[in-house]
Amino acid sequence: MWHFLGELASWYATGSHWHGSSGVPVLLWATVKIAAESVLIALAVALPVGVGLGHSGRGGFLAINVTNVGRALPAIAVLVIGVQVLGIGEPPALATLVVLSLPPVLTNAYIGVRQVDPEVTDAARGMGMTGWQVLRRVELPTALPLIAAGVRTAAVQAVATVTLAAYVSYSCLGSLILEGISVGDHVEIVAGSLLVVALALLTELALAWLQRAVTPAGIRVASRLTWSEA
C-alpha cells in the first residue's frame, strides 16, 4: 500500500509525464476542450428547441423521452459506430459527445419552461406582455436553474465520455488509463484515473456553483431534476 502510494507520487513527480504531446497538460487540455465544445454545440442546438417546445407546450413526449433514449445508448456503442462512419480520432469523439449532451439540455430546458406557474405567465400576459416578452422576462429567468442543471449533467457526462474516446484513439486523459491497462502498469492506471476523477468532480462543483449563481433568489429550491423527473 505505502509502496504503491510512493510509486504513485513519483509518477506525478516525473518530469516526462508533464511534457510533450502525451504529457498531462496536453491530455488535460484535449479533454477539457472537446467536452466544452460538445456542451456548447448541444446548448446552441437543444436550448432553442427545448425552450420553444416548452413555451408552446407542444412536443412534450419527445422532449421527455429523448433523455431516456439517450441514457440507454451506451457511449461506447455510439463511439465505435461513429468510428465506422467518421474514422478514428476527434470527429467520432466530438459527434458522440454532442449526441449524448443534447438530451439533458433539451429535456431540462423543456421542463424548466413548462413548470413555470401558469398563473405567473397569465399575469404577465394580463400586464400586456407579448409572447416573446413573456418568454424572455418571465419563463427564461424562472427556467434558468433547471437549464443550468441540464448543462451540469451534460458537462459531467461529457468529461466521463471523453475518457472513453481514448478507446477510439482520441488522445486525452483516458489514454493514460487505457495505456496502463494494455501494458499492465497499475501505477499509470491509477495516476490517470485520479486525474480524470479530479476533473469530473471539479466540473461538477464549478457548475453546481454556476447553477446556484443563476438561480433567482426567490426560487432557490433543489433543482437538479434530470433523473427523478425526466
Binding site: 466521463a160 475518457t163 472513453l164 481514448a166 491497462i181 492506471i189 484515473s193 476523477v197 469530473a200
Partner: peptide, 17 residues
C-alpha cells in the same frame, strides 16, 4: 452523488489494481 460523478472508465480502472 460523488460516486455517480466518477467517470466509469476511471472507476473500473481504479479497481483493477
Amino acid at each position: 452523488g460523488a460516486l455517480f460523478t466518477v467517470p466509469s472508465l476511471a472507476l473500473f480502472a481504479f479497481l483493477i489494481p
